[in-house]
Computed example of a mutant assay.
Amino acid sequence: MGEWLEIPLRYHTQRRIIHLDMDAFYASVEIREQPELKTKAVVVGPDPRQTGGHGVVTTANYVARKFGVHSAMPAAQALKLIPREQLVFVPPHFELYREVSAQIHQLFHQITDVVEPISLDEAFLDVTNNKRHEHNTIKLAQWLQQQILQQTHLTCSMGISYNKFLAKVASDHNKPMGRTIVRPELALAFLGELPIESFFGVGKKMQSSLHELGVYTGHDLQQLSQAELIQRYKKMGFMLYQHARGVDDSPVSNQRDRKSIGKETTFNPALTTDEAARRQLTQLSQQVAAALQKRQLHGKVLVLKLRDADFNTVTKRRSLDRYLYTATEISQEALLLWQQFGDLSRGIRLLGVTITDLFPVAYENLSLPLIF
């Protein structure tokens, strides 16, 4: 085997990037609307006592998080963790969250138009050249944080650095209402202290694999050679090698990225009743809605996929003049298509529901008055 030629790293430290993350956004909006909830453990999501134990936590405030509750946890588990006298379930109000998000995004654009929304409550801002002509990024972040607090009565946390990866990690470092800056000369030390799961792309499977190599922190990761990481993890290995050394050249992108999100399931034996098909379509719609909400996307086109027991496949689509986002909206449209085109004569072997023509929810052009 020939000698490994190491790919040189290029450090670009001239950019100034802010990653802004609203603090427990949905729960904080609900508490703003109902101040009496401030001392309660607020869980945004369905109350499992009213849904037969079904449903997952959308988010939770910091009081609830102290009991170990987190987003995507089964709502029934939250019920077990929090004393009944402190626990309050609040159903999500996504239209309200979108309105508040649009208001916050208006403030972003008072600083820069180079904004990359990640979700309703999270965004990257490239403030290298900003509209306020402010060279001190900490002052700029402080101004934005104060404006959000004054105009929405909500708090946020910020990470500031020369690239997106460091800014993202830094925003989680001091929550809530924190500001963390990672300067180039301190990046290696900062990264060295991070648990390995804080690095992009390191899920549970990757964690286990890295633990087998004795890697539990960024410092441990920094000890592995580029060759070893690439040979073991391919492209992901090179990204880990870069991130462990504070390198991330990905730009803050304000381009709309159209996508599609869908769920499908097969049946054996095939479905033969209208009731069973409708029940499955409702469940698929709920799964699609959860995936959309996780990524904070919504779309205007619904696609229904049908396959009969003879493996004949049909797709039907419905284009709308409004965005689909909730499980109720998606299932309503899917069931309308099923009513028009569903055919049980040969049985149903597969059902699929997909939403296409997607955009981040933050791109809704809402014109809202600012609150003073």
Score class of each variant (00 low, 15 high):
Glu3Tyr: 12
Arg10Met: 15
Arg16Cys: 08
Ile18Met: 09
Ala24Met: 10
Phe25Ala: 09
Val29Phe: 10
Lys38Tyr: 11
Val42Lys: 02
Pro46Phe: 00
Asp47Arg: 01
Arg49Met: 00
His54Met: 08
Val56Lys: 00
Val57Phe: 05
Val57Met: 03
Thr59Trp: 05
Tyr62Lys: 09
Val63Ile: 15
Val69Pro: 01
Ala72Gly: 06
Ala75Val: 02
Leu79Asn: 03
Lys80Thr: 09
Leu81Cys: 13
Ile82Asp: 00
Pro83Gly: 12
Gln86Cys: 05
Leu87Ala: 06
Val88Gly: 04
Val88Pro: 06
His93Tyr: 02
Leu96Thr: 11
Arg98Asn: 12
Ser101Pro: 11
Ser101Ala: 03
Gln103Ala: 09
Gln106Glu: 14
Gln106Ser: 13
Gln110Leu: 07
Asp113Arg: 15
Pro117Trp: 02
Pro117Gly: 06
Glu122Met: 07
Phe124Thr: 01
Thr128Glu: 10
Asn130His: 04
His133Phe: 14
Gln145Trp: 08
Leu149Met: 15
Thr152His: 07
Cys156Ala: 11
Ser161Arg: 02
Val169Gly: 09
Ala170Tyr: 12
His173Arg: 03
Asn174His: 05
Lys175Tyr: 11
Pro176Ala: 10
Met177Tyr: 13
Met177Arg: 13
Arg179Pro: 00
Thr180Trp: 10
Ile181Arg: 10
Val182Trp: 10
Pro184Cys: 00
Leu186Ala: 15
Leu186Glu: 15
Ala187Ile: 03
Leu188Gln: 13
Ala189Trp: 11
Leu194Pro: 11
Ser198Phe: 09
Phe199Cys: 02
Phe199Val: 01
Phe200Gln: 13
Gly201Ser: 02
Lys204Tyr: 09
Met206Trp: 07
Gln207Lys: 15
Ser209Arg: 15
Leu213Asp: 03
Gly214Pro: 12
Gln223Tyr: 13
Leu224Pro: 02
Ala227Pro: 01
Ala227Gly: 08
Leu229Val: 08
Leu229Asn: 08
Leu229His: 04
Ile230Lys: 08
Gln231Gly: 10
Tyr233Gly: 00
Tyr233Phe: 15
Lys235Ile: 11
Met236Glu: 06
Gly237Phe: 01
Leu240Glu: 02
Tyr241Arg: 03
Tyr241Phe: 14
Gly246Asp: 07
Val247Leu: 11
Pro251Val: 08
Val252Cys: 07
Asn254Leu: 10
Asn254Pro: 05
Arg256Cys: 04
Arg256Ile: 08
Ser260Pro: 08
Ser260His: 13
Ile261Trp: 05
Lys263Trp: 03
Lys263Asn: 10
Thr265Asp: 15
Thr266Leu: 02
Thr266Asp: 06
Phe267Asn: 08
Phe267Val: 09
Phe267Thr: 05
Asn268Val: 07
Ala270Arg: 03
Ala270Ser: 13
Thr272Phe: 10
Gln280Val: 13
Gln283Val: 13
Ser285Asp: 06
Ser285Phe: 04
Val288Glu: 15
Leu297Met: 11
Leu297Ser: 05
Leu304Asn: 10
Ala309Arg: 09
Ala309Trp: 03
Asn312Ser: 09
Arg317Phe: 09
Asp321Ala: 14
Asp321Cys: 05
Tyr325Gln: 14
Ala327Gly: 10
Ala327Trp: 01
Thr328Gly: 00
Gln332Lys: 12
Ala334Pro: 03
Leu335His: 04
Phe341Ala: 11
Asp343Cys: 12
Leu350Arg: 07
Gly352Met: 05
Leu358Arg: 09
Leu358Thr: 13
Val361Gly: 05
Tyr363Gln: 14
Glu364Lys: 11
Pro369Ile: 03
